[in-house]
Simulated scan of single mutants.
Amino acid sequence: MSSISGPPPSLKDDKAEVVLRKLEMTVKQKLDGLLFGNHLGLVPGPGSEAGESRVYHPGDDVRRMDWYVTARTTTPHVRETVADRELETWIVVDLSASLDFGTADVEKRDLAVAAAAAFVYITQHGGNRVGAIITTGEETIRVPAQSGKAHGDWLIRKIIETPRAKDGTRGDLGATLEELRRPQRRRGLIVVISDFLGEPTWARPLTGLQARHDLIGVEILDPRELELPNIGLVTLTDPETGQTVEVQTADKGLRTRFAEEARRQRAEIATGLRRAGAGHLRLRTDRDWLLDVMRYVANRRRGAPGGALR
């Protein structure tokens, strides 16, 4: 695949402000004039928030009849809807210790930050509000939804500067998503960025959010999570538990079993997202991340079911 952007900036090599500006330049240069529009079609339709009632006119959609007002006034009325011109986007970012891993161009954490920045820049126009909930396992950071470029930059900088988890505790993605269910928020877009490893505690609350929100699951992965190379005896460490195990990668049977289990795991993640009604964008540390984002958004604008991209 030809690259249009190269790997995202490394959080280890650059300061937060440098990473922010690199991401801004990369995303805007590639997306400006190509994908920008009213929410890029991420939340299509005339709107779902109830508006004022008005007198019925011939040609109005009878499905929007306001029967309560019609009965009270004896004059046919229809209920207008508020067009979703002001979108509220919530970005849930999982920065658990398992994201501090990468064997290709960057770490998964770098890719997660880049994905968050892309969706901030995509959705922040036209008075749209963007907020974030960041979970590391040690702490949960909440950034309230506000509009404006300054707020968007501050939100991205907050994600960049989030310290790495020290004790290796995995963030509870399910509990984080529950925070978006209570109190109930106005209809909008929720983008969940994670590797979705561990127990699928996220499946149930994500399903509960689909009634009022458009959902996108951004799955972050590294090629070594899909298959093991033949490099002899290696010691592997679980970044979230600290447990180590020696693996003889020269064993072809072991490599085959690992690949099969990895495929099963990823299939379960894809199924869980699909059942929750979420679009599925998969970003890999060895692929052009921005090209994958652009293709995904273009598919959603064309109305592709779920906007899935593998």
Rank of each mutant, 00 (worst) to 15 (best):
A150F: 08
L31V: 15
V55Q: 10
G242W: 10
V27G: 01
F36T: 12
R282Q: 10
P144N: 09
Q210A: 14
G45C: 11
R72S: 04
E199C: 00
T235W: 03
E86P: 00
I193R: 09
T285D: 10
R186W: 00
A259M: 06
I156Q: 06
S48F: 10
E199G: 00
A308E: 11
G126P: 10
S48L: 14
T73Q: 03
G41V: 04
A132W: 05
L189M: 02
H39T: 06
G51C: 11
H77N: 08
T237A: 12
T285N: 09
N230P: 04
R129P: 01
K108L: 06
G6S: 04
K108D: 07
D153R: 15
V69L: 12
S2G: 07
V234P: 05
T73G: 02
S10Q: 02
K30H: 13
G171N: 04
A259K: 15
E227K: 12
A270L: 11
K22Q: 15
K158N: 14
T237S: 11
D94G: 02
R79C: 03
E260C: 00
L31K: 02
T241M: 12
V218R: 05
G253L: 07
P7A: 15
P44I: 13
M65L: 15
R109G: 07
G217K: 02
L99S: 04
G232T: 06
A278H: 05
R182Q: 11
R72C: 00
R72Y: 00
T207K: 14
A262P: 12
A203I: 08
L226F: 01
R186H: 04
Y56S: 07
K166M: 13
T271W: 07
G217S: 13
R255G: 09
L20G: 04
T135W: 01
G171L: 02
G279S: 12
G102H: 06
E86Y: 07
P200V: 01
L206N: 00
R224C: 00
A211M: 11
D13Q: 14
Q29M: 13
G51N: 10
A115L: 08
D110K: 07
M65V: 15
D60M: 05
A50N: 03
D84S: 12
I231H: 01
D84L: 09
D32L: 11
D94R: 04
D60T: 08
L197H: 14
A270S: 14
V78G: 01
V191Q: 08
R282T: 11
R274W: 01
G47Q: 02
G279F: 00
Y68G: 07
R170L: 02
T73M: 06
F36M: 09
R157G: 03
T70H: 13
I190A: 02
L23N: 10
E227S: 15
H125N: 14
A250H: 13
R255D: 05
P44R: 15
W90P: 03
P229I: 07
E161H: 06
L281T: 08
W154R: 15
T249A: 11
R54G: 01
L236H: 01
T201H: 09
T123Y: 03
V69A: 14
D13I: 14
L228W: 11
T135M: 07
E225T: 09
R72A: 11
A116Y: 09
T123C: 11
K149A: 14
V82R: 15
A270H: 09
V18C: 00
A117Q: 02
V247H: 03
L177N: 14
V113H: 04
L42E: 09
M65P: 04
I141W: 10
T162M: 08
H213T: 02
